[in-house]
Simulated assay, not measured.
Amino acid sequence: MRVAAIQTVTGTALDANLARADALIAEAARGGAELVLLPEYFCLMGRHESDKVAVREQDGDGPIQRFLADAARRHGIWLVGGTLPLWCEDAERVRNSSLAFDPQGERVARYDKIHLFGFTRGEERYDESRTILAGREPVTFDAPCGRVAMSVCYDLRFPELYRQMASTDSENGLALILMPAAFTYTTGQAHWEILLRARAIENQCYVLAAAQGGKHENGRRTWGHSMLVDPWGEVLAMLPEGEGVVSGTLDPARIAEVRQNLPALRHRVL
């Protein structure tokens, strides 16, 4: 199965962001991608963290959700919409939700980001809990490549999330971990690639990471380096910075080979 990660430098205008995402989805589809992943906040990187509350949608309908469903259907692809802001019971916050659509444009999964980013170093400060209500449930869905695990950005630092979704039966383990993200330049430079490769190695599956990558209108700088990592931890493709598409092929024989040579999943005790 051929997959693609889209990297954006999302701005502050929703319509312009969707138009740019649409063009990049089309580029990925022309390249043969059967599953396409958008980055976290692909639809909006506001000037203020509260800007996403103003465009939040009710679960099941809204311009962003319709855009995703339509794009999946038009191109006949599995499309995972990075994240978008969905309604929650708190009037000042949103769910930061990743939605997966099948080639018919039907939604097959929704994952609400569980781990909320917090970071302070000098004048650089982030606290997602101020505007986001955390999810609680891990989510997987089945695609032609096998079982796919959904996760978002800061989740990458919590290996127990993926262990909960992985199986001790190497024949039925995860085939692919999805990682839409907006890693900061500071944290991405230090840890992004290391963490992605670690998650691939320990779960013996592919990891597809779609990132924000550049200097945004709101002044934020994101790390980029969208990539596809194989079950041995090898980086198969990567885009350091700027808009674009990273693609590659998931090979079930490669997963089987790694798990046969090093049956770590079967050796799990805890």
Rank of each mutant, 00 (worst) to 15 (best):
residue 260 Q to Y: 13
residue 27 E to Q: 15
residue 64 I to C: 02
residue 10 T to L: 09
residue 70 D to Q: 14
residue 229 V to C: 02
residue 121 R to M: 06
residue 102 D to R: 05
residue 186 T to W: 02
residue 206 Y to I: 07
residue 74 R to L: 14
residue 35 L to M: 14
residue 123 E to N: 14
residue 8 T to S: 10
residue 192 W to V: 00
residue 96 N to L: 15
residue 16 A to G: 14
residue 206 Y to G: 08
residue 82 G to V: 10
residue 258 V to T: 06
residue 95 R to T: 06
residue 220 R to S: 06
residue 19 A to T: 03
residue 223 W to K: 03
residue 263 P to Y: 08
residue 68 L to W: 06
residue 53 V to N: 12
residue 135 G to P: 13
residue 37 L to R: 03
residue 183 F to E: 05
residue 97 S to P: 02
residue 74 R to E: 15
residue 241 E to W: 03
residue 176 L to D: 04
residue 241 E to R: 08
residue 97 S to V: 12
residue 113 K to T: 09
residue 224 G to I: 07
residue 267 H to N: 11
residue 141 F to S: 05
residue 30 R to P: 01
residue 226 S to M: 11
residue 63 P to G: 10
residue 247 S to D: 09
residue 4 A to H: 08
residue 69 A to R: 14
residue 165 M to I: 10
residue 125 R to D: 01
residue 50 S to K: 15
residue 227 M to P: 01
residue 126 Y to F: 07
residue 60 G to W: 07
residue 15 D to K: 04
residue 244 G to K: 11
residue 121 R to G: 06
residue 3 V to M: 08
residue 223 W to Q: 01
residue 204 Q to T: 07
residue 176 L to R: 04
residue 17 N to K: 09
residue 238 M to F: 00
residue 178 L to K: 03
residue 100 A to H: 08
residue 88 C to T: 15
residue 64 I to M: 11
residue 88 C to S: 12
residue 85 P to Q: 15
residue 147 R to T: 15
residue 179 M to D: 11
residue 200 A to C: 13
residue 251 D to W: 09
residue 62 G to E: 11
residue 101 F to R: 04
residue 3 V to E: 13
residue 140 T to R: 05
residue 211 A to T: 11
residue 144 P to Y: 02
residue 161 L to T: 00
residue 265 L to G: 02
residue 189 Q to H: 11
residue 88 C to L: 13
residue 90 D to M: 05
residue 236 L to F: 08
residue 101 F to C: 06
residue 41 Y to R: 14
residue 40 E to H: 12
residue 42 F to A: 05
residue 106 E to H: 08
residue 87 W to P: 00
residue 19 A to I: 00
residue 97 S to Y: 04
residue 22 D to S: 15
residue 249 T to N: 12
residue 269 V to G: 01
residue 25 I to A: 10
residue 28 A to P: 00
residue 218 N to H: 03
residue 257 E to T: 08
residue 103 P to D: 06
residue 153 C to R: 07
residue 125 R to A: 06
residue 132 I to S: 04
residue 175 A to Y: 02
residue 104 Q to F: 02
residue 163 R to I: 04
residue 121 R to L: 14
residue 232 W to S: 11
residue 32 G to I: 02
residue 204 Q to C: 03
residue 63 P to S: 08
residue 117 F to T: 00
residue 41 Y to L: 15
residue 163 R to L: 13
residue 181 A to G: 10
residue 19 A to Y: 00
residue 91 A to I: 12
residue 3 V to T: 05
residue 129 S to P: 06
residue 12 T to G: 02
residue 82 G to K: 04
residue 239 L to C: 07
residue 55 V to P: 04
residue 91 A to F: 08
residue 79 L to V: 10
residue 218 N to I: 00
residue 197 R to M: 10
residue 214 G to T: 09
residue 133 L to P: 00
residue 185 Y to Q: 14
residue 3 V to Y: 09
residue 126 Y to E: 01
residue 147 R to Q: 12
residue 152 V to A: 12
residue 205 C to M: 02
residue 116 L to I: 04
residue 87 W to V: 12
residue 141 F to E: 09
residue 163 R to M: 15
residue 220 R to K: 12
residue 12 T to K: 11
residue 198 A to K: 07
residue 106 E to N: 11
residue 108 V to F: 05
residue 79 L to I: 08
residue 92 E to V: 02
residue 140 T to G: 12
residue 45 M to G: 00
residue 186 T to D: 04
residue 86 L to A: 09
residue 125 R to Y: 05
residue 267 H to P: 01
residue 210 A to C: 12
residue 56 R to C: 07
residue 196 L to K: 02
